[in-house]
Amino acid sequence: GATAVSEWTEYKTADGKTYYYNNRTLESTWEKPQELK
């Protein structure tokens, strides 16, 4: 079936920290989303 993983994109900030952005909800988070675990 369809999965929600594709909504999240992993980015890195200029200082090398990783964060996650959800293209559907426009939410961003420092925590790894449940969908990616």
Rank of each mutant, 00 (worst) to 15 (best):
Gly1Tyr: 09
Gly1Phe: 13
Gly1Gln: 12
Gly1Lys: 11
Gly1Thr: 14
Gly1Ile: 14
Gly1Pro: 14
Gly1Arg: 12
Ala2Asp: 13
Ala2Gly: 13
Ala2Asn: 12
Ala2Trp: 05
Ala2Ser: 12
Thr3Asp: 14
Thr3Gly: 14
Thr3Met: 13
Thr3Gln: 14
Thr3Tyr: 05
Thr3Leu: 12
Ala4Val: 15
Ala4Cys: 15
Ala4Phe: 08
Ala4Ile: 12
Ala4Met: 14
Val5Ser: 13
Val5Pro: 12
Val5Glu: 11
Val5Thr: 11
Ser6Asn: 12
Ser6Gly: 14
Ser6Asp: 11
Ser6Met: 09
Ser6His: 10
Glu7Arg: 03
Glu7Ile: 05
Glu7Met: 05
Glu7Gly: 06
Glu7Ala: 05
Trp8Gly: 00
Trp8Pro: 00
Trp8Asp: 01
Thr9Trp: 07
Thr9Phe: 10
Thr9Asn: 07
Glu10Asn: 02
Glu10Asp: 02
Glu10Trp: 04
Glu10Ala: 06
Glu10Phe: 03
Tyr11Cys: 15
Lys12Thr: 13
Lys12Gly: 03
Lys12Phe: 09
Lys12Ile: 13
Thr13Ser: 07
Thr13Met: 05
Thr13Phe: 03
Thr13Val: 02
Thr13His: 04
Thr13Gly: 09
Ala14Lys: 09
Ala14Gly: 07
Ala14Ser: 11
Ala14Thr: 09
Ala14Asn: 08
Ala14Pro: 11
Asp15Met: 04
Asp15Lys: 05
Asp15Val: 03
Asp15Arg: 04
Asp15His: 04
Asp15Thr: 08
Gly16Pro: 00
Gly16Arg: 01
Lys17Tyr: 07
Lys17Glu: 10
Lys17Asp: 08
Lys17Trp: 05
Lys17Ile: 07
Thr18Lys: 07
Thr18Met: 08
Thr18Val: 13
Thr18His: 06
Thr18Glu: 05
Tyr20Lys: 00
Tyr20Ala: 00
Tyr20Gln: 00
Tyr20Pro: 01
Tyr21Val: 15
Tyr21Cys: 09
Tyr21Phe: 14
Asn22Lys: 01
Asn23Lys: 12
Asn23Phe: 09
Asn23Leu: 07
Asn23Gln: 11
Arg24Gly: 06
Arg24Thr: 11
Arg24Ser: 10
Arg24Phe: 11
Thr25Lys: 02
Thr25Met: 01
Thr25Arg: 01
Thr25Leu: 03
Thr25Asn: 02
Leu26Phe: 14
Leu26Ile: 03
Leu26Pro: 01
Glu27Tyr: 03
Glu27Arg: 04
Glu27Ala: 04
Glu27Pro: 00
Ser28Ala: 11
Ser28His: 12
Ser28Phe: 15
Ser28Met: 15
Thr29Ile: 08
Thr29Met: 07
Thr29Gln: 12
Thr29Gly: 03
Thr29Ala: 07
Glu31Pro: 02
Glu31Ala: 05
Glu31Gln: 08
Glu31Leu: 07
Glu31Asn: 06
Lys32Ile: 11
Lys32Trp: 04
Lys32Pro: 09
Lys32Asp: 05
Lys32Val: 10
Pro33Tyr: 03
Pro33Met: 02
Pro33Val: 02
Pro33Ala: 02
Pro33Lys: 01
Gln34Ser: 12
Gln34Asn: 13
Gln34Met: 13
Gln34Val: 13
Gln34Tyr: 09
Gln34His: 10
Glu35Val: 04
Glu35Arg: 04
Glu35Pro: 04
Glu35Met: 05
Leu36Val: 09
Leu36Lys: 06
Leu36Glu: 08
Leu36His: 09
Leu36Phe: 12
Leu36Gly: 09
Lys37Gly: 15
Lys37Phe: 13
Lys37Glu: 14
Lys37Ser: 15
